[in-house]
Design a protein around this nucleic acid. Structure first.
Length: 814
RNA sequence: GCCGGGGUGGCGGAAUGGCAGACGCAGCGGACUUAAAAUCCGCCGGAGUAAAAUCCGUGUGGGUUCGACUCCCACCCCCGGCACCA
């Protein structure tokens, strides 16, 4: 009697053996095609939860599959180790961020090793170590030298709880992406990366196999609008004339302008407001400033504003229109000034109605007789009240009017983006220091590349307010100017951690390289990433920044590709009891418990089986026993003695080979297409079939052994320990993970007999078995001879016969 | 409001124009056992029947088709993203 399947015994055993043998060590090999399989590295939060397993186990299965298919597979793992939670832990528990982070790394690495993945731990990357952040800083300097990093004062998002600024991408629904606290506006001097320079390219995803959803999100985030910039002259009785520009996508409505609006923060507000309006305007601007973004940006919010007392001249018709201030206009978009066309814009209509501003129709809808509008007409129509453009279609007038403005010098075509530059400075300690120095004489001076890294000091004290300890660390703060050697001050802000994750995939290709961020030859061998998997929440953060980073590096000549990630796959989310997992809900599932009772292989397979990977699913351990049961069945089928029949049946053996090869094909296709749940069920079906065959002993030993060998090979990526153990016990040479993926034989998989479904008027009446290569006439003849068909048709007339070879015969009767 | 994704047995899901419910969980019945667990075998959408036949059934209503879970139109609900972007 063979031993029972005991994962707790075999899993540590093989993990240790694989590690000793460096089975998964990977180096460049020009004799094989390379495959870079990357899973988003985890943040060092402390514990791996089941969601991490859901990200990592299936991607390891795919990588192992590619490996068995003959690819030279790199599938690295590391840690995103800088970030705010480490600092919060420091303040709450008095533990140093470094110690907190490295303790978590140790624990998570231990947990990760229990997955049984093919990670080559020699390539591990930890972003908070000086060997790594030295090059993060180096990239900052290179971006600075390329004119892509600059310092500017700007209204920025400030999270009062995290005591830090946030990039636009890191604000969701007006709240901080980490703690959901409402962000407020602050005017601060900050470092920015010119991501907007790549706006057009970032909207393009040509040649990328990415989910449509992510591509759309990125396109919308860039938010390119084509339109026109139109000039106006604003007169103020005291300050005189001021030429301003507005951006519009509807230059065809320019004759319908009845007012202009400035954003409350617009610098011209103060200048343009007439003395008698000053008090009211000031009060309004103040109240707008105090409102949170969420209040200001809510579409339901009633539009309000104040008149500045100034008037602007609409150059196309010489009309003078009032200039207002209203907070439905955003300073950050376009020019921060909007032309008000109430007749043809919903927001302007609401605003004009509220303040009795005239509504002037310039595009007539079909059948319009001059009656008043009860809502803005925003569609196309015929131009009216528009001088020489009357009678033209609004569509045509759009370009004709801009051409006219351009000729007169009153405006021109223009493009505006929603995308803003990437704000990268953070007022926190636990990040890569920005390698810049402020010198009274020389101004802003970059640290010399040779002087990197600018080390984070470790002897720090946190203040209870959350203010960065770097600001008061004299030894860090005081330095000399790299240029003039005079005493100077260091930048105390650190970099957004998304900067660290924008190049970690490059570092994996040569983690020990000292003379640069990566070894160019090795990087060229492995990059770009062939399959990148992770959560969709990074659509306009990490994925977006990494693309920008890659393009910037390409333009500096550091890399020779345009895109870092060729194929992107987003797995779904694991939820628990129909709720998101979170510490606050107390429903975080720790995989250790399952691994230490049922084994890693069972958890790996259960996660794949429970739902399509892209969909995600409810973690409900009631079904997990089915996986243990299944592996036990395979275990016993493999190790129990198979007694072949004295006289094997030729037909059975053909069927046996057919089932096996159809399964090999199905499993291969399914892994390739990332359909892990149906891949597992195909293997289960094969198991059920093998159990029946074993019962009837109807095939020869060599057929049986071949099938067992194939099913073990097909199980190897999913259940690496289990398959290795059975491979070993079956007497095959170590290791199953160095074997080739089984090939399917098309001839053997071919059906000899087909089951033809017989329908009458589309309703299934019966099914008949026929040879696979039967002709239409013969098939129909066989159908007509069937008893069931006779009784269903009775004496009705057959009007038509639909025949789909190998599938169906449908008799249409009247 | 706009843009995606989705709605199928008691449950997770399968089938993307051709047998709805593969595979698994739970449940029910049986074998083995002194008994239980484990294991093995069988049943398992609803109505209907002695058993069949038959009818109904993939969120709702319509349509296209010989044939629709699958395609088209309208609507309802759930999830995700964006949201005064001029």
């Amino acid at each position: 009697m063979p031993s029972n399947y005991n994962p707790l015994e075999i899993e540590p055993k093989w993990q240790q053996k694989w590690a000793e043998d460096n089975l998964y060590r990977v180096t460049e090999d020009s004799s094989k095609p390379k495959w870079y399989a990357l899973t988003m590295f985890p943040y060092t939060s402390g514990d791996l939860h089941i969601g991490h397993w859901y990200a990592m186990a299936p991607s390891d299965v795919h990588a192992r599959f590619k490996r068995m298919q003959g690819y030279n597979v790199i599938h690295p793992m590391g840690f995103d180790a800088f970030g705010l939670p480490a600092e919060n832990a420091a303040m709450n528990h008095g533990i140093h961020p470094y110690d907190w982070t490295m303790k978590n790394v140790d624990n998570m690495r231990r947990q990760l090793k229990t997955i049984g993945a093919i990670y080559d731990w020699e390539r591990e990357v930890i972003t908070c170590l000086p060997d790594y952040y030295r090059w993060t800083q180096w990239f900052f300097l290179r971006l600075y030298k390329a004119g892509l990093a600059y310092r500017a004062k700007a209204p920025v998002n400030w999270c009062p709880k995290c005591q830090v600024v946030l990039a636009n991408e890191q604000v969701a629904n007006g709240g901080c992406w980490r703690c959901e606290t409402q962000v407020i506006r602050r005017d601060l001097e900050q470092w920015f990366f010119r991501i907007t320079r790549y706006a057009d390219e970032l909207m393009q995803h040509e040649g990328l196999d990415w989910p449509e959803r992510i591509k759309t999100m990125q396109k919308n985030w860039v938010g390119k609008s084509q339109g026109a910039e139109i000039h106006f002259i604003i007169e103020n009785p005291v300050t005189g004339e001021e030429k301003v520009k507005v951006f519009t996508t509807r230059p065809d409505t320019v004759f319908g302008i009845t007012y202009l609006v400035l954003a409350p923060e617009h610098p011209l507000v103060e200048k343009l407001t007439t003395p008698d309006r000053q008090a009211e305007v000031n009060a309004y601007v103040e109240s707008a400033r105090r409102r949170t973004d969420i209040e200001r940006l809510s579409a339901e919010q009633e539009k309000d504003g104040v008149f500045t007392g100034a008037y602007a001249t609409n150059l196309v018709n010489g009309e003078k229109v009032p200039v207002w201030v209203a907070d439905y206009v955003l300073l950050s978009y376009g020019t921060g000034i909007v032309m008000g066309v109430p007749a043809h814009d919903e927001r302007d209509f609401a605003f004009a109605t509220k303040y009795d501003i005239p509504i002037k129709m310039v595009i007539s809808l079909p059948g319009w007789q001059g009656e008043e509008l009860d809502a803005a007409y925003i569609d196309e129509g015929t131009m009216v009240n528009s001088g020489q453009f009357d009678g033209m279609s609004s569509d045509e007038a759009r370009s004709r009017i801009v051409d006219y403005l351009a000729k007169k010098g009153w405006g021109n075509y223009a493009v505006t983006y929603r995308l803003r530059d990437w704000l990268v400075s953070r007022q926190r300690y636990w990040g890569a220091p920005i390698p810049m120095v402020y010198c009274d004489r020389c101004g802003i001076v970059p640290v010399e590349e040779n002087d990197l890294p600018v080390l984070l000091p470790t002897d720090i004290r946190f203040s209870p307010t959350g203010e960065s300890p770097l600001r008061h660390h004299q030894a860090f703060l005081n330095t000399t100017c790299p240029q003039c050697k005079a005493p100077a001050k260091r930048e105390t802000d650190t970099m957004d951690t998304f900067m660290c994750s924008s190049w970690y995939f490059l570092c994996y290709t040569s983690p020990d390289y000292d003379n640069g961020p990566f070894d160019e030859e090795k990087m060229k061998y492995w990059m770009p990433v062939d399959l990148y998997t992770g959560g969709a929440e990074h659509a306009v953060m990490h994925l977006f920044y990494s693309r920008f980073f890659t393009k910037a590096l390409r333009d500096m000549g550091l890399v020779d590709f345009d895109e870092p990630f060729l194929k992107l796959f987003n797995q779904g989310t694991v939820i628990v009891d129909h709720q998101k997992m979170s510490k606050s809900r107390g429903n975080v599932i720790n995989p250790d418990h399952y691994v230490s009772t049922l084994g890693a292989d069972v958890v790996r397979i259960y996660l794949m089986f429970v739902a399509p990977w892209e969909q995600g699913g409810d973690w409900n351990d009631s079904g997990i026993s089915g996986i243990s049961r299944w592996l036990n069945r395979v275990w016993n089928l493999t190790l129990e003695n198979y007694q072949p029949a004295d006289k094997p049946e030729a037909g059975k053996e053909k069927e046996f080979e057919r089932v096996l090869h159809q399964t090999i094909n199905k499993v291969t296709q399914d892994i390739d297409n990332i359909h892990f749940n149906t891949m597992i069920s195909a293997l289960m079906e094969l198991t059920n079939y093998l159990a029946k065959i074993k019962e009837s002993s109807s095939v020869r030993r060599e057929n049986w052994d071949g099938a067992i060998r194939s099913i073990l090979l097909m199980l190897a990526p999913s259940a690496p320990h289990f398959a290795e153990e059975l491979w070993h016990q079956s007497g095959y040479p170590y290791s199953i993970h160095n074997q080739s993926w089984p090939k399917w034989d098309k001839e053997k998989a071919k059906d000899e007999e087909i089951t033809l479904v017989v329908q009458v008027n589309g309703k299934v009446k019966t099914r008949i078995n026929l040879p696979a290569d039967i002709s239409r006439d013969e098939a129909v003849k066989a159908v007509m001879e069937s008893e069931r068909v006779h009784s269903s048709i009775a004496d009705k007339e057959i009007a038509d016969v639909i025949y789909v070879p190998g599938k169906i015969v449908n008799l249409v009767v009247r």
